[in-house]
Write a protein that binds this DNA or RNA. Structure first.
Lengths: 121, 121
DNA sequence: CGGTTCGTACGATACTCATCGTAGTACGAG
DNA sequence: CTCGTACTACGATGAGTATCGTACGAACCG
């Protein structure tokens, strides 16, 4: 039985805020941690969803779980179990509809700052 | 001696980060508190600078001072003493140069959310 | 079944932060 | 010089959070 024909989530379910429950302050707070901003940038760099474990963060597994939960509870990412893996995807549509352009400008700002700091010059 | 002929700041000086020292995470963190977001919105609504005391925040004066300091230390506002008053102005140029469009999208997002929450419909 | 991998839950710790009240300083007006 | 206004500094407090290690659970592979 091919994996892609099974139900996407095999049991465990995660709490996600509705679109209407997402708060700007919460989203900004989620973005304001370097670790989480990095996660969001990585997630934005690909189109689909990413396994939790592809992120190479300089913190322990527990801490990584914590940061993903903050992102989820503030409506930034959607998480779903797929076998033993937990897939993560940005909630692009919800964010764009609530706060047009915000994700884009933040990502661009993060990119600019990364370039700026990378070149001591 | 007319007040407007004296130097703008009469002695006390405040610490401000250079443009190059402003960090995106810090700016986002400064924005992520409802009280501070309100201050930024009020400040953006006028062109010039605003006295601290025109803000009618539902917190004590000590707390207000604290929030203004966070905004200043993260490079969001420029503060200067003018007599007994402390004037506040957004650092529009610095923010725009570092993170183009960010201030605008955040302000628009805040406006949208305010309208959305005001109408329970 | 047993083992492996991936992620969670829980408890602990140390740090940050939003808030307050009180006391103090700087400035301008009288 | 004295008073009032505007804001700060300091200390306290309660809540949140970033971090960890260890122990557990759920799914897959033999």
């Amino acid at each position: 039985m091919p994996a892609q024909n099974r139900p996407p989530s095999s049991g465990r379910s995660l709490e996600h805020p509705d679109r209407a429950e997402i708060r700007l302050e919460g989203v900004l707070h989620a973005f304001s941690d370097p670790m989480r901003l990095q996660i969001v940038r990585d997630l934005a760099a690909v189109e689909g969803e990413l396994n939790c474990s592809v992120f190479d963060l300089p913190v322990s597994k527990s801490t990584t779980t914590h940061h993903f939960r903050v992102l989820r509870e503030n409506g930034v990412v959607r998480q779903v179990y797929r076998g033993t893996a937990k897939m993560n995807a940005l909630r692009r549509d919800d964010l764009e509809s609530l706060f047009p352009g915000l994700l884009g400008t933040v990502l661009e700002a993060a990119g600019r700052q990364a370039s700026r700091l990378a070149v001591p010059s």
